[in-house]
Design a protein around this nucleic acid. Structure first.
Lengths: 165, 165
DNA sequence: TATTGTTATACTCTATAACTATA
DNA sequence: TATAGTTATAGAGTATAACAATA
């Protein structure tokens, strides 16, 4: 595949593209990596009607492991808008995966609980997600670098929440 | 903000959430980070009608710096589907940012060229993108770790393209 | 006044499959 | 047969602003 149709060097390949064009921005590499891993995961979740879509998974896990957790906390942890999270929860509820109760302590707040059906799905999805992430990254990043990477990213995540972004 | 509405420890905070729930998957942290940096960038690009949307920017830069580059190469470099890239190019063309020519060497292929208007926009956007990525990551990751991070991610990017994902 | 969650709206991004035209 | 690009379709995800109820 030639980079440019009328190249002076007809054999030039995409590898020849000066990636400094991308300005060495971290944002580019993060974005591309996310796209790739998300696409791969979506394929592995294709069968599971409800769980499909990268955005919902974490919320389901958290409700499963933290009974009574609130929508606003889920939004915070997943770095989403409250309204976006609300839509996800609507879907879960409609599919009988969770229940919502109004808090007795604060009538504005909700408590979220997993149903047996939801717990079963969460367990199944968890296995897939863990396996997928592992095997995906094993294909492109050496184990030692993976350890460094997750260490850096975990701290970045904490900072993200501290800073409110 | 209490984690659980009826917690035994009413002061428990989101920090208390056991993040191992997320199974320590790299995919989670990559996804959240991408969401955060993309959202931040979108805000900075809000005014620029055409450039808005994280997905298009790199393509515009590459056409600017590699006259005659092909759509399929852009799709490869940005890890997108050809049809998705086609739609982006349609938008660019409709806004007078690029031109398409059929290759004289291969009538199936196209050559893409930036217009003066496109070049001007690319220059403006480039400044914003570079600045945004820098200042965003400076807020959440120490400089030394950033260097390690981009090093790892660049190699991961190369592997991604090698493996075809 | 601030917070929790909802509703309505609109937009971006993406993939899939079927198609054409060329090679 | 394989490749470059298009079209049509469908779906996921997201943010914004305005709102109601509550604190």
């Amino acid at each position: 595949m030639a980079l440019v149709a009328r190249s002076r060097e007809p054999d030039s390949r995409p590898d020849d593209v000066d990636l400094d064009v991308l300005e060495n921005t971290l944002s580019f590499y993060v974005r591309v990596l996310d796209m790739a891993v998300s696409r791969d995961l979506d394929r592995r979740l294709r069968d599971l009607e409800v769980a499909r879509g990268k955005g919902k998974i974490t919320a389901l896990f958290l409700i499963d492991s933290h009974p009574g957790i609130r929508p606003s906390v889920l939004a915070d942890l997943t770095r989403k808008d409250r309204s976006a999270m609300g839509r996800i929860l609507d879907g879960f509820e409609a599919h009988g995966l969770i229940t919502r109760r109004i808090s007795t302590e604060d009538n504005r707040a909700q408590e979220l609980f997993i149903t047996p059906k939801g717990a079963a799905l969460a367990a199944k999805v968890r296995t897939i997600v863990v396996d997928q992430s592992e095997s995906f990254f094993n294909r492109i990043i050496p184990p030692k670098e993976q350890a460094v990477l997750i260490d850096i990213l975990k701290r970045a995540y904490r900072r993200l929440r501290e800073v409110g972004q």
